Simulated assay, not measured.
Amino acid sequence: MSASTPAHLLAELVAQDGTRPRLTWYDDADGPTRGERIELSARVLATWTAKAANLLVDDLGVERGDVVALDLPAHWRTTYWALAVWRVGAVVSLGDDPAAAVRVTATPTAPTGLAGTTAAQQVAVSLPALARRWTPTDRGPADLPAGVVDEAADLASHPDVFVPYDEPEPDDPALRHAGGEWAAGGLVDAARGLATERGWPPGARVAVTAQDVDDVLLALLAAWSTGGSAVLVRPSSDAATIPEPVALQARWDAERVTSAYGPPGRPASRP
């Protein structure tokens, strides 16, 4: 894969084989979405990305160089939002950011109650796979505050194709997090470096159990840079509901996992 930005990497995956699964999601976390399994091909992921990018530009006025705060967990929905921000040419900032023009979050708040940020606009993201209107998490409000965009209700109305007004470049800032800032090209280079360091083969199928969003995004890009795919897992924090190693091994076998990326001690390694 020769892509120089995350957006170009996704485009290469679509061109290579648009129907092949590139992201498989398992939700093992406690709560109403526990047990979900979602599979996205490159084409489907590109469609979600295009719709989110169109929402950012058409509804919220986001432009190349703007900052968009992603206040979301490690989740399949976070993936297409990050890709959408990068396709616009904006900067993904993880967590609250005073410079953010937009906050994309699973826990929206009234503007007067959002301490520490000047984000003028919010997008409320419902995590359940089949949500068609705002569906709160255990920390989210029952009803959306006035002026907050309901992603579940609005996203489907946006076009499946996005063409930026101002094409992003590899040198554009792309990811801002606690460890610093990456340009778009540097992020892809770092992803390739991770794949090389871990010895992931061409077409790797990578189990990703990391939960820091910056780690997850880098691991997904790394898997895709090999022409491969990823199985992203949201683990349970409750020891009583963590799948047994035998069950996890059966999952990795069923998903044909070849490699793993996650915190030490997570049962995601392969022989």
Rank of each mutant, 00 (worst) to 15 (best):
Leu218Cys: 05
Glu169Val: 14
Trp224Tyr: 11
Pro271Lys: 08
Pro235Met: 03
His8Arg: 13
Gly95Pro: 02
Ala268Val: 05
Glu244Thr: 11
Ala99Ile: 04
Leu9Pro: 04
Tyr165Leu: 14
Glu36Asp: 13
Ser269Gly: 12
Val161Pro: 09
Leu40Gly: 01
Val68Tyr: 02
Gly147Gln: 06
Pro168Gly: 03
Leu175Asn: 11
Ala142Gln: 13
Val148Gly: 06
Leu187Asp: 03
Trp25Asn: 10
Ala52Gln: 03
Ala110Asn: 09
Thr135Pro: 10
Leu248Tyr: 04
Pro164Cys: 01
Pro128Trp: 02
Leu217His: 12
Thr5Val: 08
Val246Trp: 06
Tyr165Lys: 07
Val233Ile: 09
Trp182Ile: 00
Val216Trp: 07
Ala204Trp: 05
Thr24Cys: 14
Arg64Trp: 10
Asp214Asn: 15
Ala106Gly: 09
Val257Pro: 01
Leu72Ala: 13
Arg22Leu: 11
Thr118Asp: 13
Val14Thr: 00
Val92Tyr: 06
Leu220Pro: 04
Val125Asn: 04
Gly193Tyr: 05
Ala204His: 00
Met1Tyr: 11
Gly193Asn: 07
Lys51Gly: 02
Phe162Arg: 04
Trp48Asn: 02
Ala124Pro: 08
Tyr80Phe: 15
Leu94Met: 10
Pro21Ile: 02
Gly35Thr: 06
Pro245His: 11
Trp134Gln: 01
Ser225Asp: 09
Pro145Glu: 13
Thr78Lys: 09
Gly116His: 00
Thr33Ile: 06
Arg266Leu: 03
Leu45Ile: 05
Val102Asn: 06
Glu63Val: 15
